[in-house]
Each structure stands twice: as structure tokens, then as C-alpha cells.
Design a protein around this nucleic acid. Structure first.
Length: 124
DNA sequence: CCCTGATTCGC
DNA sequence: GCGAATCAGG
């Protein structure tokens, strides 16, 4: 019975709160709800006093800059040596679905290339 | 290159 | 108050 509701009814807000609280991303909630964009969801969430959910970013001064905040689409690539105390992860932007960023994804997802035929050493 | 949420501006 | 645009970060 729902016609095109463009306003935030109690049901919409409740669903928003639940989905958001469950850890659903704004874009997911937006699409699940229907005629709303992720901006609308975020905007309403912010206005409601929410927005304190697992946000990968931090609108705060970069003090410690602890890049080891592996959350969502962060490139989880072991840099350096796992035995070194300086062992860290890439932390760079990962692509859609891939646990690694574009650069490391290319390494991790190396296509079935023929390297044996590459022994010709064509330096030129 | 993608996606994330936060913030800001305009309606 | 709502939504989109913009910003900042990973």
C-alpha cells in the first residue's frame, strides 16, 4: 500500500536505525529502503544523531596516523616482512570485492600468464 | 580506480 | 528537515 513516499516515516527511520546499527552501509540501506540515496540515509542518520557507526575515516586531526585501522575496503597486504617489527599493511584503497588495492590486487590476482615463454630476454 | 561516511550548502 | 553536492580518508 505504499505509494511513493519521499518522506521519512517512522517505519523508514526505524529501519534506518536498525540497518545502520546492524552494520549496514549507508548505500546498502539506501538501496534496501528504496527511493533514497546514500546521501539521504547519511543525512538523516546524521540528523537523527547517529553516524557513530564503523566509519573507516576519521574527521579528526591526523595525530598518530595509525594506518593499521583495517576495516572495510582497506588493502590487506603484508608490507615488508612478517618477522619485522615494522611489518604493516598497505592500507591503500582496495577495489570492489578485492581485499587488496589495485596495485596489490594485480599481484595477488595475477592472471595465468606464461612466464616460461618470457625467457627470451628481449631487452630493448 | 573504488567505496566509505561526514560535513556543508541550497532548496 | 530533506537531499544532493562536496570533502576527507582508506
Amino acid at each position: 500500500m505504499e505509494a511513493t513516499e519521499s518522506t521519512w516515516s517512522e517505519e523508514r527511520v526505524e529501519k534506518l536505525r536498525q540497518l545502520w546499527g546492524q552494520g549496514m552501509s549507508a548505500s546498502e540501506i539506501a538501496e534496501l529502503l528504496g527511493n533514497v540515496t546514500r546521501n539521504a540515509v547519511i543525512g538523516k542518520a546524521h540528523r537523527l544523531g547517529l553516524s557513530g557507526r564503523p566509519s573507516p575515516i576519521k574527521k579528526k586531526p591526523t595525530k598518530g596516523a595509525t594506518i593499521l585501522s583495517l576495516t572495510e575496503r582497506m588493502c590487506k597486504w603484508p608490507v615488508g616482512d612478517p618477522k619485522s617489527p615494522d611489518f604493516h599493511f598497505c592500507g591503500k584503497p582496495s577495489l570492489n570485492g578485492l581485499p587488496y588495492c589495485a596495485e596489490h590486487a594485480a599481484i595477488a590476482y595475477q592472471p595465468a600468464r606464461k612466464r616460461e615463454d618470457d625467457r627470451k630476454l628481449g631487452v630493448a
